[in-house]
Amino acid sequence: MSKPVTIIMIEDDEGHARLIERNIRRSGVNNEIMPFTNGTEAVNYLFGSDGSGLDHKGRALLILLDLNLPDMTGIEILRRVKEDKYLKCAPVVVLTTTDDSLEIKRCYELGCNVYITKPVNYESFANAIRQLGLFFSVIQVPPAAT
């Protein structure tokens, strides 16, 4: 890992965001986490002012994405990320309350790397996030395409 991985967390529910962050930290991941509470801000950051995503050329990003956002659907963001030539290599972890199999299938079709449903049962939730931390430390996050 030449550069530290930046975790982009797109999650409208601040409580969820907090819980996710805490559990990531507990699992021993200390990477920078950039939280966004709505889709527009996240999209602006990810794709930059020209909408090409050129800003993140050469950076290692990991995107934590909630599907139910107030201003757009997470699926829309996922599609755009996977279509962008600079961002498409960034792993996307979909984290959502939806456990609808159709939706899960759709996300995987669009190129999502991991799909995690948020269980109400906190132990399962914490466990899932911690395993995600393990996943972060194992996978080699490629830098955004050069």
Binding site: G15, H16, L19, V120
Partner: peptide, 8 residues
């Protein structure tokens, strides 16, 4: 969604 928070 809020239930996840409450439980968490």
């Amino acid at each position: 969604s809020p239930l996840v928070n409450i439980m968490g």
